[in-house]
């Protein structure tokens, strides 16, 4: 009995402490696998109808067609979070869980941010001493999100150019050069259709969290919290 507890003991707390990231990691992989199978089937259906070569699964997941479909969604997600991270420093929404309290505008004081001489013993090492490390670490989340956004968008452009030109050739048209593709409706339509959905999702969350509740969720205010209360979490 005691030995049994000893075996499961260390694993379960770890799962519990990381459940959110593990769950999202798992459904990300499942979704990508599903996208790969359905995307391959869709591509091959069209290819067979047109008498063109089909893709094996491996060929499909390494193709520009799959890459552009993945990248166009990734870039918009990271843009969404980048904007959210940066804009909430300066913009407020009274009553929203996604906004800071109205008196906390800007980068806030070192004391509020627990940096340098205000750091706690268990603060991250780069937060404890002034200098370039503190400056870099103070913006590390935005920089990382921004970098992934730029790389994903670049990947969408490169893969999209290749996928679009393959389609052009299949339709007996000349492929486009890089500059022409940068101005092409295909590139901007892929980009903007993803951006608008992300902006809608963020805007909805900002506004709906003022008036609606989900008991127990940190993304919601406590059920009995007034609508006007800003920045509180349940």
């Amino acid at each position: 009995m005691t030995r049994r507890q000893g075996r499961v003991g260390p694993t379960r707390p770890r799962l519990r402490e990381n459940g959110l990231s593990l769950f999202f990691g798992a459904i990300l992989l499942l979704s990508l696998v599903g996208q790969a199978f359905t995307g391959q089937a869709g591509y091959n259906d069209q290819a067979l109808d047109s008498g063109l070569p089909t893709f094996t699964l491996v060929e499909y997941v390494t193709s520009s067609q799959f890459a552009v479909d993945v990248a166009e969604n990734w870039q918009s997600e990271y843009l969404q979070f980048l904007l959210f991270i940066l804009l909430t420093i300066y913009l407020f929404q009274k009553g929203s869980t996604e906004s800071k309290p109205l008196d906390k505008r800007g980068r806030e004081s070192d004391e509020d941010q627990k940096v340098a001489e205000h750091a706690q013993p268990d603060s991250p090492a780069w937060a404890k001493v002034r200098g370039w490390r503190l400056s870099l670490y103070s913006h590390s989340l935005g920089l990382t999100m921004g970098l992934i956004f730029v790389l994903s968008w670049l990947a969408q452009f490169v893969a999209g150019h290749s996928a679009y030109n393959a389609e052009q050739i299949q339709q007996l048209s000349d492929p486009l050069g890089w500059t022409d593709y940068l101005l092409a409706p295909d590139f901007w339509n892929r980009t903007l259709q993803n951006w608008q959905s992300e902006f809608l999702a963020v805007g909805s969350m900002v506004v709906l969290s003022i008036y609606l509740r989900e008991r127990g969720s940190p993304e919601s205010k406590p059920v009995g919290e007034p609508h006007g209360s800003t920045g509180s979490q349940g």
């Binding site: 520009s64 890459a67 552009v68 790389l151 994903s152 670049l154 990947a155 490169v158 893969a159 290749s162």
Partner: peptide, 23 residues
Amino acid sequence: SRNARRYAAWPATCALLALTGCA
């Protein structure tokens, strides 16, 4: 050959290829 890759591979790979001028 003004362009043309067989496959664009993974998004990150594409980005790196483009950034390093291999595109």
